[in-house]
Design a protein around this nucleic acid. Structure first.
Lengths: 142, 142
DNA sequence: TAATATATTCGACAAGGCGTAGAATGTCAA
DNA sequence: TTGACATTCTACGCCTTGTCGAATATATTA
């Protein structure tokens, strides 16, 4: 008796952020800084949405410590707290920790596979990273 | 104006499964197979919980396709569908995909760091994995 | 067979997250 | 003061997870 389906995991930050939160963060990463209205306008071009919806989510992102909110000339401006890279590290590190407890081997295998699939060139960088990390550990051991 | 806190991420499969779901899966990974009551008893040793709570969650895990449910002599027995390793791959692959879109570099860096911290020996394996993957790609290119 | 015990399923509720947005309130300039 | 625009409040609906009691099914046995 085995039920089929396999739906854990969604997309990205999958589970870390909601879709709208993602969209908004992405826009902020592109623009660097924007007012709620600007973000609203940008999203509006794609689909129907209310200004307050955007503002609410922006507020939530701020409460989560993901964006900075600063009064500009006449309106609040929002900026991401983290760069994409930082955010990726931030988000992934806890996930990895848990994952490794499950299975370091499985995680590594999967990681390499997906990386090769998505961005093979990065394999070189990964290799370099591993090597330098190894050296770092060696030297620390004395 | 920056609100502090950084609470995305929890533990493991963090966000993929709830706590009780995790506990139960862990128990199943240890025992290989167990009845709802056995799992209940095990958890009960730690904290107060009702049998039905355990059964409900077991049912949900089954609906998610994470456990197998089979009638034993007199009661239903549950077994995990995936090994820990498989589950780790399964869960991580989608996560990685999204993560890489964010920042392959950031993800790799984070991955190596955490791995080094949690299980440095695995670095060798990772290195080997990367190398063999690279070769695989090379050879495919012809 | 009826009664008792045990196993399993149903239905529900609360809490928390996210998307959604109208209503209310605040602010500033004409 | 009155708009016009900005910001905050409040709230609903939906979904997931933890939590169970009640109801039902099944088996055991007096």
């Amino acid at each position: 008796m085995e039920k089929t389906s396999s739906k854990f995991s969604k997309e990205v930050y999958g589970k870390i952020l909601g879709h709208l939160e993602q969209d908004i963060l992405d826009l902020l990463w592109s623009s660097g800084e924007a007012s709620g209205k600007e973000i609203f306008t940008a999203i509006r071009r794609t689909r129907g949405i209310a200004l307050t919806t955007v503002l609410t989510v922006l507020e939530r992102l701020w409460k989560k410590g993901l964006v900075i909110k600063e009064k500009g000339e006449s309106v609040y401006l929002f900026r991401p707290v983290f760069t994409k890279e930082e955010f990726a590290k931030e988000v992934s590190s806890d996930f990895f920790k848990g994952l490794f407890e499950l299975s370091a081997g499985g995680a590594s295998a999967s990681f390499v596979n997906i990386l090769a699939q998505v961005d093979p060139v990065e394999l070189d960088r990964l290799k370099a990273l591993v090597e330098s990390k190894k050296k770092e550990i060696e030297s620390r051991k004395g």
